[in-house]
Write a protein that binds this DNA or RNA. Structure first.
Length: 795
DNA sequence: TAAGTACTGGTTTTT
DNA sequence: CCAGTACTTA
């Protein structure tokens, strides 16, 4: 280590030059103290090396469950403990905010809390932090808005309409996807136009749309998700002295899930770890921050978002002299689960061979089940979970994964009926509800008056008689006067509107002004409460006769509660901070480990998590691989990796399930077993009901074409198959939901269930609408049913 | 301008 | 099956 002058322009309290103590030999693995070294105890040799290696570039190839988080946290702790770096000189990038929080906690645990000032966050959060600080340098102001994908689409919709580009086949969705792709490659409208074929009217129209979109974002003082990264790179490249601030601040940059970085993120990393240049820098004094990346190309599942697997595959070429360490020992799963995972992923041809292994033994067999329908499959999952739970397994140790969010419907329906506590991670989130977005648009309009999109959203919400015609007049006034739409509202009285209209506009403007004054002195919840009451938003919902509006008003109350909670956790948090946090929360971020619920999530959301027991559902063609990706180059391979990620989340027990028919858009279609299922050696799976032996209702469906592939399984199935009465499909479940009102049941009563037949009530638990009947059915076994909605009658 | 009705079409994964 | 949209009517 040289005594590099290290400036920490932004650091809090660590601006002085750190004391860099040469203190290495005592803690090197194999040294005298190794046996009692708390940062190396229990690590295998490769893990220990990954903690101790020092050099400019280190790639840790970490197979699933190989303890990479442990390695990363211990490495950071060691850097700080050794005084090789101050906490403020460390930048660690994770994939989700949840992973960031967990990493911070673990590092603090290892260091006894001396971790203040570390930057541990997602790419997006880190970039927002940089951009807010430096916004004044390049034409934005620090109160900028972050547009999520639906905001982008609303904006694009207007732009496409203005250009009459819808007739050319442009939709907000496809234009947004194309722009996003380009931004991830660091292209902008200008650079794209240079290489475009201008004789193609489609191309010309797209460039117009792209340009207008960029212009609109800039004038709204807003960034979309992709901008957060791309604009930070642009900032660093355009202003080397700004880049140098961060190049000098961070001495160690660590990136998790490196296989899922895209080109823009890669470029950002390159900029951050580069040797500074420009005035004031003494050449040769800072070789650039040391870079540590951790990843596994077998878990690359975000190509659709621009992730470029080459970033990790070509790491050694990118960073000459880079050290590579392989972690293959798995500490999570049983050998049966790993063997299945290894067998599946081995079918991806262009990969470096890598085999996970464990010394914990084979464990239980994987359990397979083929349902007659998605509902039947869901019923199986619910029944198994109930069995596991009564055998002592906590609900929060169990997870159910699926490929598409649409699959939650069947699962949810059955889970509600079976009174299973569950939580859907991601999916239609609270923050995506219209009334919540309305409230956020009010907050945004207060924080960032330049944001026209937000002002347009609230201008007639709730209804105050300001229609499209009036909005257009206001907007064109703003344009002519070279001011914002927000300021146009203030001038309403001079614009010649009728008295009613003028009044409505001025009242809104006054509410926004009042809230802005309030925002100066803090309290997010007070600003929000002022806005939603004085704008009439919440009263409009409360007084509405649409029964759903009552729930919407409650959601707004819930949002106020969220802001109060935020204030408790962040006493210094401003309104801007609150909006930023909400804009960047991911689906996986609100998993609550302590709660006693089963977790339901997509395979993508599952990445990085682990559970004792995992159910992988819908393992069918057209779902996994998904229809949309089956024909794309690289599609089936990426879908296989998704399957691999799902399998490797399980510690002890893995279930694979599928259905023979699946409902989509109200119609039911025949489903075929996924091609990936055959890639798992037959002896690893015990089929409760195999795809080969189960026939769809007629028995001679197109599935017969497929049957050959399953013949090898037949012998085993015959033995495992239950006797003949099972043919009556006692698990078949109808999709109708009913309401039994106040049906009274008591132990000893006999009931008839439309699917399960007759049974006897053993017990009734719970209160009111949550009363649950514990029933012993004659053919279908023991079930728990939510009395209010189960398709049952007393007999 | 707002509310109500009839109709279309789209369907993956997410920071 | 749903949400979003175009069209009608008061």
């Amino acid at each position: 280590m040289t005594s590099t002058p290290i400036s920490d322009a932004h650091g809090s309290g660590s601006a002085s030059t750190p004391v860099i103590v040469d203190w290495p030999t005592a803690t090197i693995p194999g040294g005298e103290n190794a046996a009692s070294d708390h940062l190396l105890d229990g690590l295998n040799p490769q893990q220990a090396e990954a903690v101790e290696y020092r050099g400019q570039a280190l790639l840790i190839v970490a197979g699933a469950g190989s303890g990479k988080t442990r390695v990363l946290t211990h490495r950071i702790a060691r850097l700080i403990e050794n005084r090789e770096a101050w906490p403020s000189q460390i930048l660690a990038i994770t994939f989700t905010n949840k992973a960031a929080a967990e990493m911070r906690e673990r590092v603090e645990g290892l260091l006894g809390g001396r971790a203040e000032g570390m930057w541990i966050s997602t790419f997006h959060s880190a970039c927002v932090r940089i951009l807010r600080r430096e916004a004044d340098n390049f034409g934005f102001s620090k109160n900028f808005t972050i547009y999520d994908s639906s905001d982008s689409r609303v904006l694009l919709k207007r732009i496409i309409k203005q250009h009459d580009a819808d007739v050319l086949g442009f939709t907000p969705a496809n234009a947004s996807a194309k722009i996003s792709k380009l931004k991830n490659e660091l292209a902008d409208a200008e650079s794209y136009a240079r290489n475009a074929n201008m004789s193609d009217p489609n191309e010309v129209a797209f460039i117009e749309i792209f340009r207008d979109y960029e212009r609109a974002l800039r004038s709204a003082n807003a960034f979309d998700f992709d901008d957060l990264i791309a604009q930070t790179v642009y900032l660093f490249r355009a202003f080397p002295q700004v880049a140098a601030l961060y190049q000098n601040k961070f001495r160690h940059v660590l990136v998790d899930e490196y296989q899922d970085t895209n080109h823009a993120q890669y470029s950002l990393i390159r900029e951050l770890t580069r040797e500074p240049e420009g005035a004031g820098y003494l050449p040769g004094t800072n070789p650039g921050a040391a870079l540590t990346v951790v990843g596994d190309s077998d878990q690359s599942i975000y190509a659709f978002r621009g992730a470029d697997i080459r970033n990790i595959v070509e790491f050694e070429r990118d960073f000459p002299g880079a050290k590579v360490i392989l972690l293959e020992q798995n500490y999570r799963s049983t050998q049966n689960i790993l063997s299945a995972a290894n067998a599946v992923i081995a079918n991806n041809f262009d990969r470096k061979d890598k085999k996970l292994w464990t010394d914990v033994g084979d464990g239980e067999k994987i359990i397979g089940y083929t349902g007659y329908s998605g509902h039947d499959e869901a019923q199986f999952v619910a029944d198994e979970i109930e069995k596991l739970h009564s055998a002592g397994l906590a609900y929060n140790e169990i997870a159910v994964f699926y490929r598409t969010n649409a699959q939650t419907r069947a699962l949810e329906e059955i889970f509600v009926r079976s009174a299973l506590p569950y939580k859907i991670m991601g999916g239609t989130k609270f923050y995506e509800r219209a009334e919540i977005k309305d409230a956020f648009a009010y907050l945004t309009a207060v924080v960032n008056p330049a944001d026209e999109l937000a002002v347009r959203r609230i201008i007639n919400t709730p209804k105050r008689g300001i229609g499209p015609a009036t909005v257009t007049q206001l907007a064109s006034f703003a344009e002519n006067a070279e001011t914002t739409l927000r300021d146009a509202l203030r001038e309403a009285s001079t614009l010649g509107f009728g008295p009613k209209m003028t009044r409505a506009i001025s009242d809104l403007s006054a509410v926004l002004d009042e809230a802005a004054a309030l925002a100066e002195k803090g309290k997010v919840s007070e600003v929000l409460t002022t806005l939603i009451t004085k704008s009439g938003l919440i009263d409009a919902l409360r007084l509405s006769r649409d029964p759903q509006d009552e729930a919407r008003a409650e959601n707004l109350d819930e949002l106020v509660a969220v802001t109060k909670e935020y204030e408790r956790n962040n006493p210094d948090g401003t309104l801007i901070d609150f909006l930023t946090e909400v804009a960047l929360v991911a689906a996986a971020d609100d998993i609550d480990d302590a709660s006693g619920t089963v977790s339901l999530m997509t395979l993508h959301t599952a990445k990085g998590l682990e559970f004792n027991t995992v159910f992988l559902t819908g393992i069918e063609e057209d779902l996994l691989p998904h229809r949309m990706s089956a024909n794309e180059p690289g599609g089936p391979a990426e879908e296989r990796r998704l399957f691999y990620v799902g399998i490797t989340r399980a510690r002890k027990r893995l279930y694979l399930s599928l259905a023979m028919t699946r409902a989509q858009y109200g119609e039911t279609a025949v489903a075929m077993p996924s091609r990936y299922l055959q890639e798992i050696p037959a002896e690893l799976i015990e089929w409760k009901q195999s795809p080969g032996s189960a026939n769809s209702r007629g028995g001679t469906q197109p599935r017969a074409l497929n049957a050959r592939r399953w013949q090898s399984n037949r012998g085993a199935d015959a033995a495992a198959l239950p006797p003949a009465e099972k043919k009556q499909w006692p698990n078949r479940v109808t999709g109708t939901v009913r309401d039994n009102g106040d049906l009274e049941l008591a132990p000893g009563d006999r009931i008839r269930h439309t699917d399960f037949g007759e049974g006897r009530v053993n017990n009734v638990t719970g209160e009111g609408s949550k009363r649950v009947a514990h029933v012993q059915f004659e053919t279908a076994g023991a079930k728990k049913l939510l009395i209010k909605i189960a398709p049952i009658e007393k007999i």
